[in-house]
Design a protein around this nucleic acid. Structure first.
Length: 461
DNA sequence: CATTTCTTGAG
DNA sequence: TCAAGAAAT
């Protein structure tokens, strides 16, 4: 085992981003012994169903294969595992490259303290975050956090000018051999995937890069136009790879440079991801509670009838074809087009008057790309309780959203087999057909009436 | 629609 | 610090 002058590097992460982190490479240069990877159970911090667990395991297996079967996976809390890794490697000092994520100052400090107090030559090397800008580092001139996207994005745009592309050429890492251990933490074999009832995307760094290059080649130029079309494959599908760190946003930024409309629009989406990471860092409570506390008093539906409505929404039986198509896409594909995420969220909150966190939890459980910062704040935006300062109430019309963004009705027919024989955009209002298809439900609410109801509840605050 | 956030510039 | 005016993705 190790000698007294041995140094090891431990990569402390919740996900797998390894090769494109400059701080990781810098730390690696200081090590003469071994590198280990351990993965925290992501469900510690974020609700996740079997879909994300299965995807994580697939990411691990892809990485293990890439590294010639020398991946060490250790599960557990950093406070507990880090000292034992030092022991296992036989190192007299360990550099822990820790990524702190968007979970807030308190959690950052707790992790820092726990790792620092392990002593015995454990040194914390603060790594880059999974964002283009470190959560918490963009503030107004008086040091207060931004609560509105646009001024944040102006600051952000200045900040990313000189961001380096990700370094992906780091395949020569030395990995700790799982058999090379002595009373330390036991390497865990990646367990079998839990049973999954959806088709998941290909996992791993290679899959991420192939998908990204195909998107840049085929869709980036027109991204501005096609990103809102759920019937077309015009989005990058990078969310799941960003979530698991098999690609870093720096790589995406490097591919989306220039003044083209598509690239500019794509960078705006990357900015939104950073923005919500910052918002969660500054306001960790906003993952569970209304960002704006005045909404604590808004009237919400509860009880048996509300739960029944919620189930109809979950199962895609609302009677609004675009909404139902989207909810069934979520069930079938573990993913939903972003345009439709906004539409179904608006429907749950404004048409059904249900708590946004019911829908947010459902998303976190079924989305393979479910991410606490983006998901919860996206829902708060839709609910009007979040960082959007506009006072007038945005209520999406579930029919016109469908007609506008799925103009030929292809998306609806793909996911709602009961309507497969209805041609063209008529599919968005099957109740108007002379002979409505049997088996497809009537609209569960009168949108006009519920819109007024939502506005009344809002104005009562 | 009508209200909150942010920037600017004066005190 | 405060008030006015612009903007809100």
């Amino acid at each position: 085992m190790g000698s007294a002058d041995t140094t090891a590097v431990v990569w402390f992460r919740r996900d797998l981003r390894v090769r494109d982190q400059p701080t990781f490479l810098a730390a690696k240069e200081r090590a003469d012994r071994a590198l280990a990877l351990f993965v925290l159970d992501p469900t510690l911090l974020e609700p996740a169903g079997p879909r994300r667990t299965a995807f994580l395991f697939r990411c691990l297996r892809a990485l293990d294969e890439d590294l010639g079967g020398k991946l060490l996976v250790v599960k557990g809390d950093p406070e507990d595992v880090v000292p034992r890794i030092a022991q296992a490697v036989g190192a007299d000092s360990v550099h822990v490259a820790a990524d702190f994520g968007p979970y807030g100052r308190q959690r950052d400090e707790a992790v820092e303290k726990a790792l620092g107090s392990t002593g015995d030559g454990v040194e914390l090397v603060r790594s880059g975050s999974p964002y283009l800008t470190e959560p918490g580092t963009i503030t107004k001139s008086d040091g207060d956090p931004y609560k509105v996207f646009t001024p944040f994005s102006r600051e952000w745009t200045k900040r990313i000018q000189d961001a380096e592309p990700a370094d992906t050429d780091a395949k020569t890492l030395t990995w700790m051999d799982p058999s090379d251990k002595d009373g330390g933490p036991r390497a865990v074999k990646v367990p079998d995937d839990p049973k999954v009832d959806a088709e998941l995307p290909e996992a791993g760094e290679q899959a991420a890069h192939e998908q990204w290059e195909a998107f840049v080649d085929e869709h980036l130029t027109d991204y501005d136009d096609t990103r809102d079309r759920p019937d077309k494959p015009g989005t990058s599908r990078m969310s799941v790879h960003l979530k698991y760190g098999t690609v870093h946003p720096r790589t995406l930024l490097a591919g989306a440079r220039g003044n083209g409309k598509g690239a500019t629009s794509y960078r705006n989406e990357l900015c939104f991801r950073d923005f919500y990471g910052h918002v969660l860092w500054w306001f960790p409570r906003s993952a569970r509670e209304n960002f704006d506390p005045k909404f604590e008093k808004i009237e919400l539906d509860t009880g048996k009838a509300a739960e029944q409505k919620f189930r109809q929404w979950q199962e895609g039986r609302t009677g609004f074809p675009a909404i139902d198509a989207a909810m069934r896409q979520l069930q079938g594909e573990a993913w939903m087009h972003n345009r439709m995420r906004m539409a179904v969220a608006s429907f749950l909150v404004k048409d059904l008057h249900l708590p946004w966190w019911w829908g947010a939890k459902h998303f976190m459980e079924l989305l393979v790309d479910g991410d606490l910062a983006s998901n919860q704040h996206g829902w708060q935006w839709a609910a009007g309780t979040g960082t959007d300062a506009a006072p007038y109430f945005r209520v999406f019309n579930p029919v016109t959203q469908g007609e506008r963004f799925d103009p030929q009705g292809d998306y609806v027919r793909r996911w709602v087999p009961e309507l497969a024989d209805v041609e063209g955009k008529k599919v968005h209002q099957p109740w108007k057909l002379p002979d409505p298809p049997s088996g497809y439900p009537e609209p569960m609410v009168d949108h006009k009436a519920e819109r007024v109801e939502a506005l009344n509840r809002f104005n009562a605050l």
